[in-house]
Nucleic acid binder design. Sequence first.
DNA 1: GACTCACTACTCGGATACCTTCTGTCCGAGTTACTAAGG
DNA 2: CCTTAGTAACTCGGACAGAAGGTATCCGAGTAGTGAGTC
Lengths: 163, 163
Amino acid sequence: MKLSGGVEWALHCCVVLTAASEPVPAARLALLHDVSPSYLAKQMQALSRAGLVHSVQGRTGGYVLTGDAAEITVLDVVQAVDGADPAFACTEIRQRGPFGTPPGKCTEPCPIARTMAAADAAWRASLRAVSIADLVGSVEESSGPRALPGIGAWLDSTSDASG
Amino acid sequence: MKLSGGVEWALHCCVVLTAASEPVPAARLALLHDVSPSYLAKQMQALSRAGLVHSVQGRTGGYVLTGDAAEITVLDVVQAVDGADPAFACTEIRQRGPFGTPPGKCTEPCPIARTMAAADAAWRASLRAVSIADLVGSVEESSGPRALPGIGAWLDSTSDASG
DNA sequence: GACTCACTACTCGGATACCTTCTGTCCGAGTTACTAAGG
DNA sequence: CCTTAGTAACTCGGACAGAAGGTATCCGAGTAGTGAGTC
């Protein structure tokens, strides 16, 4: 049970992108977070493929949040980067071995699969209840309302004068 | 996000062990489920290390559930096999880069880490709410009350006459 | 001065190696039941 | 017949290869801004 490390990067990127008013290149996001530009680019591509961000090509290109930050949930980001497959995959071993249940009788998932699926659903529901806008609000509470606009201005500026 | 496949095996083993009245060797459990004996032995060792099952050595040795099946939760088994580490590991990237928050101000986890931790807690709570005894009850509901005792008798019998 | 066109620089996107982790396997240490000999 | 020592077989436990997925990187396709040239 291990979540891809790119999930954390992608979430941070979504939060700071709410403060930007222009497309932000992946390289600049990598510089802001001090992480590998190439690998962060990969995560941004995953977000783009999922439709959470819109990619703009060309010299002044970059990434922009597709919709309202309140409409993007943490679950969306996690699933975009890490995949939407459930963590537990039932291999139906109840059908195997000397006491195997015949496949015709396996109309519903076995109790173990049901339990794991319920836990998975609880996990997803918890992530679905938090939006990027909620995260922005929490950041403003802890770091003050001036922090994010400052980062946004730095993201918009072409040169890294504020380094 | 991928759960070790051994979790499924370990859970099935715990369920059937409730029907056995003698120590059951790992090889017999593997035969029952038609899976790799060596690899299942590895999972059983993890359960033993966690104290969920008691290992008995010698000729008539094997594994026995340590306590009451109602006291062993699915979460215990999952954590024994897959590890107790949370799925999301915060790397504190908020402290890095040009706008990095100074470590002295990071007294509490960042909002992203809090969100992921809450989801993790929900997942664990869901798994903790189900015990092995509950799974046994569900199996009896779907497969009838005769199925598990039959498997238990087969597990207790030394020779595989019922194969 | 305004328009057109080619160029350059910068962007995203996917294809390519490296490494950690999971999967699967093997052999050794230890314990118990069985066997056979002796009293 | 009972006791006892020895043997043998079977168990768990941890150490050892192979494979898969995540991590990190690079280069090519495409586009917008820039500058020169021309009317």
